[in-house]
């Protein structure tokens, strides 16, 4: 009956749907008004500039503008893949991203769960405040500190000497880079990142803990069966969002930890794009490389979401 109706009067159905959409918008006009500003910003700063990706396929002559520059197809991507450092840069990007995700993602969760177990409010708030503080230190200051601490006469070598180890120049080469990069990321980010989980934990129905107590659950079992499921949606969402950032690390920190002994080895795609694009003025080449990264990031987000959906459809974003 419905099919026949649709087939017979398709125009009317479409018109009704169209009008219905606007009626809905009018009905929810307050919400729509709230969305106008964010949507405008999104359009201006995220969608508008997409026009610029054209230069990734052009021999961009800055003075002549985007449209007047000649097309070169995939020349810039070919050049990137022809660079001996290409594979090194991609691998370094993935390596830094994956290691950062593995080590920095669980830390705020662990910290939040631990803080949730602290009974003393005074102690809990004190630890929370102290753990947030490093987040407010500039990355420039952090890197200066790391460079100083890692020098032959620096703090880290003083500690090594206490244990009988020889002093080494930790700023040279790539050996200590991961330790510096991830260690400082955890130190800076764990406290701040735990806020979202603490917020989720504060909404847990306390009667669940009462029931667990009656059932004789120990502290670890309560975390496992009450607290963790409560923050699972949040952790899943953060994981999906973080997986999209695997290829876009804290490039400022990497840039500041580079020196003449490791510059080409520590380059990740974002630092490479920055130096090629902004310091060398190769906007076309840098755009092509960055566009490729954006596509890979999109694939990573979609893949993660697909995996999550396969495991638990309720937890996936789409």
């Amino acid at each position: 009956m419905t099919e026949a109706h649709t087939r017979t009067y398709p125009g009317i159905a479409k018109k009704n749907r169209f009008l219905g959409f606007f009626r809905l918008l009018w009905k929810q006009r307050t919400l729509v008004a709230l969305c106008v500003l964010p949507m405008t910003l999104l359009f201006i700063f995220s969608y508008g500039p997409m026009y610029g990706v054209l230069i990734g396929f052009k021999n961009y002559l800055p003075g002549f503008g985007i449209l007047s520059s000649p097309w070169v197809g995939f020349k810039h991507l070919q050049e990137f893949f022809g660079n001996v450092n290409c594979l090194k840069i991609i691998l370094q990007t993935v390596k830094v991203g994956v290691f950062a995700l593995i080590f920095t993602y669980p830390m705020p969760i662990i910290l939040a769960l631990s803080l949730n177990e602290v009974a003393s409010k005074w102690l809990k708030r004190g630890v929370q405040s102290i753990s947030y503080l490093p987040h407010f230190i500039s990355v420039v200051v952090i890197c200066t500190m790391l460079n100083e601490f890692g020098s032959l006469n620096g703090l880290f070598n003083d500690i090594r000497k206490l244990f009988g180890a020889q002093a080494v120049n930790m700023n040279e080469g790539t050996r200590y880079f991961m330790l510096f990069y991830i260690g400082s990321a955890i130190w800076q980010g764990a406290g701040w990142g735990s806020i979202i989980y603490l917020s989720a934990l504060s909404n847990v129905d306390t009667s669940l803990y009462d029931v667990a107590n009656i059932d004789g659950a120990n502290r670890f079992q309560k975390i496992r069966h009450v607290a963790l499921p409560a923050i699972l949606p949040t952790t899943t969402m953060v994981l999906i969002l973080n997986s999209g950032n695997i290829l876009s690390q804290d490039f400022t920190k990497i840039l500041l930890l580079q020196n003449n002994t490791n510059r080409t080895d520590l380059d990740v795609i974002s630092t490479y794009v920055y130096t090629q694009g902004l310091t060398m003025g190769r906007f076309d080449y840098a755009t092509a490389v960055n566009l490729m990264v954006a596509l890979v990031s999109l694939i990573l987000v979609l893949t993660t979401n697909t995996i999550v959906r396969a495991i638990d459809p309720e937890q996936s974003i789409w």
Binding site: N85, N260, T261, R263, T264, G281
Partner: peptide
């Protein structure tokens, strides 16, 4: 020429130290 010099110098600096 300017682009070539910038790109190659950066690479040579690091590898030369090695």
């Amino acid at each position: 020429r300017s682009t070539m010099i910038s790109a190659c110098d950066k690479y040579a600096k690091t590898e030369g130290n090695k």
